[in-house]
Amino acid sequence: GVLPHKKAPGDNQVVSLLLLAEPEAILAMADPTVPDSDIKALTTLCDLADRELVVNIGWAKHIPGFPSLSLADQMSLLQSGWMEILILRVVFRSLALDERLAYAEDYVMDHDQSKMAGLLDLNNAILQLVKKYKSVSLDREEFVLLKAIALVNSDSAPHEDSEAVQHLQDVLQGALQDYEAARHAQDPRRAGKLIMSLPLLRQTAARAVQHFCGIKRDGRVPMHKLFLELLEAK
């Protein structure tokens, strides 16, 4: 008899597609002619966030199954999940660092810089996530899966086609389960552990949105339109 085709361990098509879709790193390019201040730091971060959002919307369109959702459902997921995506990217870039956050390769914030920008509490909350993922040695495959799962799980409001959204959630969660079964078979609870980190991500993202809404109301930091549009969506 002919044996059915057996996939190699870890041969996970969803993971491969997500790894391929991963955006290139973006540089913050803080203006070297402007002296350091809270306004300069926040202006740099808001500009970086706007450019990150553009590439992350492009990225979302490469999540297998996402473009098949209705436009309204794609929009509502991004309107709820965008900050979780931005924060998870900062967290993953910061895993190799000690008590510092890599907002970009050329923009790493330490305690003093966070304090100057008025971001100490928020950055400390993000560092909690870094600590959590460091403790499990989160790998790149898990990072891309978690990011996609965070997005498709981000909206609790009714969807136009809730079955399609549920199906996408199932596909991505299944891909994480399969990946863990193949790559981390010694820890059968690893997928669950990673999923259980998502409430802290959501809580931190809500805090970040609240903080930047305050900065927006304050009106001293220029913000680009997409960033403003998504802050307003919250």
């Binding site: 706007d50 450019r51 553009v54 590439v55 919307i57 492009g58 979302a60 369109k61 436009l71 309204a72 794609q74 929009m75 991004l78 309107q79 220029p222 913000m223 680009h224 339109k225 997409l226 960033f227 549009e229 998504l230 307003e232 969506a233």
Partner: peptide, 21 residues
């Protein structure tokens, strides 16, 4: 959709230039 026109546009095309200030 009217309130979220940039997101709407970006989802519909593959434009990845920065958004206007």
């Amino acid at each position: 959709t009217e309130r979220h026109k940039i997101l709407h546009r970006l989802l519909q095309d593959s434009n990845d230039s920065p958004t206007p200030a």
